[in-house]
Simulated assay, not measured.
Amino acid sequence: MAEQTMDIQNLEKIFDNMVNVMDQSKNDIFTISEQSRQTFQEMQTELVIIKEDISRVITEGDYLEDMTRQSRRRLADVSKNFMNYSEEQVRQAYEVANDLLVRLSINRMEEKQLRVRRDELDRRIVALLETIEKADHLVNQVTTVITYLTSDLKKVGEVLETARQKQEFAIQIIQAQEEERKRLSRDIHDGPAQMLANVLLRSGLIEKTFTERGPNAALSELNQLKEMVRNALLEVRRIIYDLRPMALDDLGLIPTLRKYSSTVMEYEKGVTIHFINNGTEKRFESSIEVAIFRLVQECISNALKHGKSRDVWVKVEWLRDTMNIVVKDNGKGFDPSQTKDKSFGIIGMRERVELLKGEMKIMSAIGNGTTVLFRIPLQENIIE
């Protein structure tokens, strides 16, 4: 018994060390990713400046080239009619031509150096993007493994029928959480963060434009800056709405579903969501309305992402004791007998429906779209 206790303690110590090493490795990878991301941002800023410098140098070069041609013609005329010019005029013609030739040579050399630096930055930015993506992928994988090893799978999977389903469901929950965090991080980085960085850069350019090109050009740049800020604000609002539709608390389920349908159509060009509500809406507790909203959201997301649908019909029907929701699409459909009952999305929807004490039915066939029916009892959920 003592030997068994010692063995267990040793195993626990080894396991803890392994988890600590994995956690430290995850932190190291994350640090590398953030450093690479910072370098990437700096390179992008430098690339913008270099491209502007190239444009400036080319403009100056064209001007110098034109002036050089004029000076050569002047020099040729002086040389041909040497006796008609004073010694000072001849000397001045030679000096001007030589000075312009030197300036043009320096200009061409500067342009070449800037182009070399631009190409080098382009290559390094591509390599950094690959490094960042690999690092993010590794962090996601390591985090999933650590969370799975240190989590109590029994609490996650008590409602599932078999041990295998418990493990699969637990892993999928963890992966979904990590993917959602990664998606949110990416949305913020590629959306508002990138836009704000550009706003900061553009604000500096406006001052430079005002000095070099006058107030009208600066005003034009300022209008573009306002548009960038407006787009950043819209992107932030979209991210917040995806996290938690605040309209649920203020307006209720039906107006929020209508707004969500309109928002999806704005971001998914060519997609039409036909929303129909029959009957008088009844209010539920906040958590219940969120659960119902997520059910419809999951169905629409599946129709667009997996079914490749261009039309989705959402019908809500209020009966005396029951709320019926039908979500139908004209997408690719699938064979319900093929592994779909173990799909994480379907398992999650069934969990929500069971919490609402309702029923869910899925009807689909390959090539004929998918229809999902929810029946939710009102007496169990409605606010009196």
Rank of each mutant, 00 (worst) to 15 (best):
L373V: 08
N302V: 02
N278T: 04
K154A: 14
R213D: 12
Q177K: 09
A197F: 02
R294K: 13
V159F: 11
D250Q: 11
G369L: 08
M83T: 12
D190M: 11
D62P: 01
P336I: 03
R183Y: 09
R91I: 01
R375F: 07
R69E: 10
E52Y: 10
F15K: 08
A218Q: 03
D119V: 08
A163D: 09
R244P: 00
L243M: 07
N107R: 07
I300W: 01
D187S: 15
V290I: 13
R350V: 05
L304C: 01
G367R: 07
I347H: 00
T150H: 03
E120Y: 14
K332L: 11
D329K: 07
T68S: 12
I49R: 13
G204A: 01
R258T: 05
S36H: 05
T45I: 13
T150D: 02
Q44N: 15
S364I: 09
R183Q: 11
D122W: 06
K332S: 10
R108T: 08
F284Q: 01
K166F: 00
E266V: 08
Q38N: 13
L355D: 13
S220T: 10
E384S: 14
A232W: 04
F15R: 14
I376Y: 02
R124P: 00
R164P: 02
E12D: 08
V126Q: 14
G191R: 09
R56T: 12
Q338C: 04
L205M: 04
D62Q: 09
L319Y: 08
R181M: 05
E34C: 07
L355M: 07
V57K: 08
I125D: 13
Y260A: 10
A232H: 09
L295F: 12
P215K: 06
Q194C: 04
L233F: 14
K342P: 00
E110A: 11
L64R: 02
Q9D: 06
D187K: 07
K112T: 15
L196V: 09
L225V: 08
F284M: 11
G367A: 14
K342C: 02
R213E: 09
L149D: 03
D16A: 15
M109N: 08
N277F: 03
A93P: 05
R283L: 04
Y241M: 04
I276N: 13
W318Q: 10
Q297P: 00
L11N: 07
L319E: 14
I362K: 13
D28A: 07
H274I: 04
T339S: 11
I146M: 05
G61P: 03
S262P: 01
R181P: 02
Q38D: 13
G358E: 11
N223Y: 07
L184C: 06
L160M: 14
R123V: 14
N107V: 07
I376P: 03
E88Y: 05
L356P: 10
I171C: 10
W313N: 07
L356N: 06
M6F: 05
I376F: 05
S151K: 01
D23F: 15
I171G: 02
M1A: 10
D16C: 04
R69Y: 13
I171T: 11
S55C: 05
L75C: 01
P336A: 03
G214D: 06
D311C: 02
S151A: 08
T147Q: 07
E235G: 00
A218Y: 03
E359W: 06
K80D: 03
I49V: 15
R181E: 09
L225A: 06
K357P: 02
E359Y: 15
N27F: 08
E88T: 15
I29L: 09
V236A: 06
R115V: 14
